[in-house]
Design a binder for these strands. Structure first.
Lengths: 253, 253
DNA sequence: CGATCCGTTGAGGTGCGTCAACGGGAGTGG
DNA sequence: CCACTCCCGTTGACGCACCTCAACGGATCG
């Protein structure tokens, strides 16, 4: 079995030359702002150079589709700057957001020949694009990279399992509280402050992530604000006023 | 970074000698019944032998706990025979089943030092047990095994994302129909017949897997039976009478 | 300054949960 | 062999958490 089977791509067609992004340019991975966060953190100078040769940096506007569910999975991406949402749709338009991504996050992993979800920017974003075939070749040569990809995937799997518990068994209030805590936790992981949590996504996006409606999200947030657990700030920020209480509310204690 | 970091295990204590299973014995992987299904399918004769040296086959009764959420993640397992459920609990006892496993399935993957969920047998089962440290050493030596583990993990991630869509956005009827279709699909993958689908789990387990209650599961199944889409058979089997209709109902068409 | 989008709030409806009862099968013990 | 218990699945009655539908205000934009 070749490493090509690892992230899909049964057939190897020509590389698409045209880009979907509004801006395009060769990437200099060595100087990358998110190098320490991303998959590439495990690479040494030589391999970083090889990565730079296959990577391409693209600029996307807010609300732009990076790829759609069912598209041929030709490339993988790293978020350099901005924010991205991933979602799946039902035939009648119901939507489930399966993840929000920020700087350093990886996306586009597909074992099949097509993407299993749609990726769309929340804000203006810069993404690093790796043609799949070339990245797979690099993976084959660099075990550490292969291993890091495994770690990232396993981490996402664990997060997905937490989200299953949330979606299947938590109440609206518990969902909102868990969501805020998770956002705060991720902010810390990225080296930001834990407390005023920034929400780059709309109420509709939050609703589709938590299996609720926008109205329920709005009402629940209002209720948390009224009871003094949180308070709303300028620029889509939420201040966690009572962390202990928020933690309790997140698990129904 | 050592491969030891890959599937967790910061500290390497002594191997626990005692087994939790009711029966115990050295494994002969070469003659393993599920070898073609399992992770081990990619190994050659030499590596299979090495695997056999670290593997141990254990017998479990129905309803026995293999490991619990929070336990030190000392080992990984392969289901040789039987069926297993994986679940997470909230403090007040609400439960979310995150997966059902059958012969050939792999379990126990943990990036942290402890398991993130509980594993419990549904029926009497035989499991192959791999001490984590030893398996990690083998992974380090055998890239194909490492790669196969990645493939398995990525496949599970995709399934988890499908389940998020189900839990967050589907109605009770859609959930039940999707569940039956998924069971049928998996049966085919394992070389069994697609149609009379065998359900080794209780209504309560199905409910906790789909984010419903036992009553709703029961009512919905009754309704599908009444409308002639399915029919119940001996021994926890369900016959899919109208596959097209079931597919339509699974996505709300 | 109209149009559009987003967030909020209210009023009312409903899908599913809760509570309760019942029947059948399996295990147990006399 | 029968009684007894326990567990599981089913069904009914009812309630509620959340959805649906609707209206409104503020922000952004052409």
């Amino acid at each position: 079995m070749s490493p090509f089977d690892s992230i899909g791509c049964g057939e190897a067609g020509t590389e698409p030359g045209a880009e979907t992004g509004t801006g395009t340019g060769a990437a200099s991975c060595s100087a990358c702002a998110v190098r320490s966060l991303a998959l590439c953190a495990v690479l040494d100078a030589v391999d970083i150079k090889r990565l730079g040769e296959i990577a391409q940096s693209d600029r996307y506007e807010a609300g732009q589709t990076i790829f759609s569910e069912g598209d041929p999975a030709d490339a993988l991406f790293n978020v350099v700057a901005g924010a991205v949402k991933l979602y799946k749709l039902l035939p009648d338009g119901r939507r489930q957001i399966i993840g929000f991504l920020a700087s350093g996050d990886f996306l586009g992993l597909a074992l099949a020949e097509t993407y299993a979800f749609t990726a769309e920017t929340l804000t203006g974003s810069t993404l690093c694009r790796f043609p799949r075939r070339r990245l797979e070749a690099l993976l084959h040569d660099v075990p550490r990279l292969q291993h890091q990809l495994f770690v990232v995937t396993a981490t996402e799997l664990a997060a997905a399992q937490d989200q299953m518990l949330l979606l299947g068994r938590k109440t609206a209030r518990e969902k909102i509280c868990s969501f805020l805590l998770a956002l705060s936790h991720r902010a810390v992981q990225r080296g930001h402050k834990a407390n005023p949590v920034f929400l780059p996504m709309s109420r509709a996006d939050i609703a589709d992530y938590l299996g609720l409606t926008t109205e329920t999200v709005s009402r629940t947030v209002t209720q948390l604000k009224t009871t003094g657990v949180i308070s709303l700030q300028e620029g889509n920020r939420i201040l966690i006023a009572d962390l202990d209480e928020l933690c309790d509310l997140a698990e129904g204690t």
